[in-house]
């Protein structure tokens, strides 16, 4: 027997009623009604927290009553929700979930996601990236990030030939294209755009003491292309962004924590790893071509002189590994 509030759906005014369950029949009694229903035709709303629940009757009446075990014997509205509700009520389930969640996230972040991205990218031909790379270059040109290069044709030819020697025989050999641009906006720099397009700035070429130093930088960019970093970073970063947004979705609207912050922090690690990987590839490639990784070290040193102080401040969240470390690794590679 259950005393409860009854809503008939014609007005939002409650009525007092009593529900009596006996065997296969249910009887609902109030001042106005005295109805009988087969208990199998009743539907109970899912259990949630400590909230009161609703019993729906086949004729549209609705009863609000405190949660009780007795309600479990009546037919439930949603079969699966009962199971979820059962899980939600137990602290050991919550703590297990938390442990699973943390270990799942850590394993995915450190192992699963990088592995999956590497595996998938190896199976996607680099041709698919070409349009994207070309679009990016057009965009950079149109927005004056890049201006036409002022390097003489002879200078270009020497670098072009060196670049061709470097990537000759590599798995993605047929896909490389070297572009020269001047760029006051980004200064001495080199980029590997998707699809094998490598851009080197005039400022970078001028910084280089020798052809070898310029080639050391290009070897690093070839590493990005060969290891498919463009595609892998898009895949890894989008997964991280989606996950971060999912996990913090409840917080974003009510506490002003920047939901992007955890994602950015998580993504910089991947980006640093790609840089290190490209470095290692460059050291190997230089040695293959009878050039010394020392060229990379001296080039980095000269670049670092320009922005000393900056490097220290940003090293923690920087997308590039600390320069001193990279130089030390290059020297070590040169010795071996």
């Amino acid at each position: 027997m259950l005393k409860a509030r009854l809503y008939d759906g014609s007005t939002p005014v409650p009525d007092q009623a009593t529900l009596i369950l006996s065997g296969p029949m249910a009887r609902l009694v109030s001042r106005r009604i005295d109805n009988q229903y087969p208990a199998g035709q009743l539907r109970v709303s899912p259990r949630i927290g400590q909230a009161e629940r609703f019993i729906l009757f086949p004729d549209g009446l609705q009863l609000q009553c405190p949660d009780a075990d007795m309600l479990g014997r009546l037919p439930q509205e949603g079969a699966t929700e009962g199971l979820v509700a059962w899980l939600e009520q137990r602290w050991w389930v919550a703590l297990t979930s938390l442990t699973l969640l943390i270990s799942g996230l850590l394993a995915g972040y450190f192992v699963g996601l990088p592995l999956a991205a590497e595996h998938i990218s190896a199976n996607i031909p680099i041709e698919y990236e070409r349009t994207i790379g070309e679009q990016s270059l057009v965009w950079l040109d149109e927005n004056k990030v890049f201006l036409p290069s002022k390097i003489t044709p002879e200078g270009r030819q020497a670098i072009d030939e060196g670049f061709a020697r470097l990537h000759a025989g590599l798995p993605l050999d047929g896909h490389y294209r070297l572009e020269f641009r001047s760029s006051p906006a980004i200064g001495p720099n080199a980029l590997a755009l998707p699809g094998g397009i490598v851009v080197i700035t005039d400022e970078m070429i001028q910084k280089a003491d020798s052809l070898g130093e310029a080639l050391a930088v290009l070897a690093h960019e070839i590493g990005h292309v060969e290891r498919r970093h463009a595609l892998r970073s898009v895949m890894q970063n989008s997964v991280v962004a989606v996950l971060a947004a999912t996990l913090t979705s409840d917080a974003s609207s009510l506490s002003l924590v920047v939901a992007g912050l955890p994602a950015v922090l998580a993504q910089t690690k991947y980006s640093r790893e790609f840089e290190s990987e490209a470095d290692e590839f460059a050291f190997w490639l230089l040695k293959q071509n009878e050039l010394s990784p020392e060229l990379f070290a001296s080039m980095m040193e000269r670049l670092a002189e320009d922005d000393r102080g900056k490097a220290r401040l940003w090293s923690f969240v920087s997308s590039h590994p600390v320069t001193a470390e990279r130089i030390a690794r290059a020297r070590k590679a040169a010795e071996n």
């Binding site: 949630i48 929700e81 979820v84 979930s97 699973l100 969640l101 799942g104 999912t246």
Partner: peptide
């Protein structure tokens, strides 16, 4: 609500997001 939140997040993660619709119903219902 912590228990509801963590259980539903966990289920969402291990179903690659499909459960998120069910999770939303649970949260809204709460």
């Amino acid at each position: 609500y912590f228990r509801i939140w963590i259980v539903n997040i966990c289920l969402t993660l291990f179903t690659i997001g499909v459960f998120s619709a069910w999770a939303k119903v649970r949260k809204k219902r709460y």
